[in-house]
Design a protein around this nucleic acid. Structure first.
Lengths: 357, 357
DNA sequence: GATTCAAATGTAAGCGCTTACACTAACCTC
DNA sequence: GAGGTTAGTGTAAGCGCTTACATTTGAATC
């Protein structure tokens, strides 16, 4: 276990009375100034209805006048709550997470919570470290992406009674709550559509599946569809590569160099699909005339390129918002935290050719 | 002033001994288990070099065995530091901020800090509320975008000795540190290039300048360049609109409906430029043959569309990283916080036509 | 006017940690 | 060997807040 996070380093106690001059007012100062006890001031702030009107007015005036702001640490210590929620996402560089996180943050804010953010770069080890770090920072609850991780992590969180919510996946049978969609079924549906369009020679550019259950589920979904249609799921050329445009381009060109060119390249997300599209242009192939391309996520990019990319629309903003609400509900013990399923939907666009016509 | 953020709501003290069963170990437990005082345990964690080897080993073993994690609130209270940095950005939906924030977070993490995030949706009022909220949450320092805001905000922060860093702008004469580039000079340079290319009829699609000094500076930069070249800066058609693709499209079409069609439409950022490009396509205009378009920021989008957009490259990742380092340096009092200037650079691409050839 | 009871407020005990200061023991120096 | 260092450790005083419990106040009732 890493103890770095425990170390706050050597601290010079601020014993310098000079720097204390612009001292921040405390509850005590407010109490004295308003001529009441600290308890009353605290109640004015936390449960105003328990303080009679004229007292409250006097107190609030003192608060205002002194420019009082509660001390965070003291409050956390006494109340055992930080009203802070932690989120660990793979990266904010992918618009899908950036937008989900934006919606998540907005929803948290609406309910008086603040967001603590960390990123894992898709690396389980980094993610674990970040989980510890956010927990140590007092997060009241945690949002994680995907659900497949070391059981010890869940053990650790349970021991500390920190609620966790897994987003971007929907696992009804899981003992942890999830908010998301069925990656596997979604990809299966898209692949089915591709097959319906007459494609038989399918290749895939997948994200790295190791340690990424969404990527793995999408690949599995493609294999499901192939099996469903009597095609050999083992025969699909698959290249796994990190979600970067350039990688999509490289992978695409590699796939196209094989003996049997696929008629369609299905990508693990839109970023790879955009890369594939670029790769096609680079080697002079026309999409969708020479080869079709599909994506996943439906980020802005997918509709900006030419041709637009056929992809699966994922309601990322709604996912972020619902995740925030569900997580807060659990933190505040309003419910036990059932999973919420969101629907993805196929967006047929120019990058996929219908071979039947 | 809003006091909502002060209210933690009614709290039931966890007096239920049953729920205390899986109790989290405290410093005291560790001390007892290791047969030392709490001070020694604390020192082991915070300044190991001050504890003799064999004692330290014993203590760390106890820490390990008990699964001890320091209590955040108590630590904050005693140490007066949270090792948390707050950042308030307009929105994570724009890749420029998402990436800058990603780099910022990575750099913070590398130095043992955690990121608290909020967004303002470009609204000063919301931003102020968020500032108070993050300060109340104990942020040791704050990252803000741009520098133009109510002096009372800076007053508030100074009173609490919270260091602030303004990013995305470079203001050497400002008493607050900034990390960024000169928006005005950058736009001026780009406009000069546009003029050099023979364009005389220039229009601009700007972001909303009210409450956004970057947007205002970019517009001013364009006017500077016009003046420099003996053109009338007051004659430029300017449409201000929020940074959304669709708005760029609408604004572009509006500009094109005027009596005198501009030969180039300069946009306040790439998002608007991509929208403008889409607008051009919608009304059947060819870019750059019929009209040129320029952007600002150089996000991925700019190189994905066809034609690629001529824009100003802004080193957003570096900006995020440098901002994190500078801010931590200030928080840790390593220096007084001088501003850092980063360079933007013109990226000439297909969307800008050289009328001289 | 005495009695009752609820509402309003005050008192004070922690919460778990850091660190100034006190203490002890071991080692020098003269 | 007395006096002086110094390194290692312990003692205990807060840090500012919330809240259980005690007390006061004042209105309602008889």
């Amino acid at each position: 276990m890493m103890w770095d996070m425990l170390a706050f380093g050597p601290h010079a106690r601020d014993g310098n009375w000079i720097s204390n001059l612009p001292s921040v007012p405390t509850l005590d100062d407010v109490a004295r100034s308003a001529g009441v006890s600290t308890a009353t001031v605290s109640r004015c702030l936390n449960s105003p209805e328990r303080v009679v009107e004229h007292t409250r007015k006097r107190v609030m005036a003192a608060v205002e006048q002194l420019g009082y702001t509660p001390n965070f640490g003291a409050r956390v210590m006494a109340a055992k709550r930080t009203f802070t929620i932690g989120a660990i996402i793979p990266t904010m560089e992918n618009a899908i997470f950036a937008r989900g996180l934006q919606a998540f943050q907005e929803a948290l804010h609406a309910r008086g919570y603040t967001l603590l953010v960390a990123s894992s770069a898709y690396q389980p080890k980094i993610e674990e470290e970040q989980i510890r770090s956010l927990v140590a920072r007092g997060a009241d609850g945690l949002l994680l992406i995907g659900h497949d991780r070391d059981p010890a992590v869940y053990e650790y969180l349970r021991a500390r009674s920190i609620p966790v919510l897994s987003a971007w996946v929907y696992l009804p049978d899981c003992d942890q709550p999830t908010v998301g969609f069925d990656n596997r079924a979604s990809m299966r549906a898209l692949a089915q559509k591709v097959i319906d369009f007459g494609h038989r020679s399918i290749a895939m550019i997948s994200g790295i599946t190791e340690g990424n259950d969404r990527a793995a589920a999408r690949l599995a979904g493609l294999r499901d569809a192939l099996s469903d249609n009597g095609l050999d799921p083992g025969a699909v050329p698959v290249i796994e590569t990190p979600y970067e445009i350039e990688n999509g381009s490289v992978a695409f060109r590699t796939l196209m160099q094989g003996d049997t060119r696929p008629s369609v390249v299905m990508c693990g997300n839109d970023v790879l699909a955009v890369g594939a599209l670029r790769g096609a242009r680079e080697i002079g192939l026309s999409v969708p005339d020479d080869v079709s391309i599909t994506g996943f996520d439906d980020i802005e990019l997918a509709r900006i390129v030419e041709p637009q990319i056929t992809t699966l629309h994922v309601p990322h903003r709604e996912m972020g918002r619902r995740a925030a609400e569900a997580l807060i509900d659990i933190v505040e013990k309003r419910n036990s935290g059932a999973s919420i399923e969101l629907q993805s939907s196929i967006q047929l666009r120019g990058s996929l050719r219908d071979l039947r016509v």
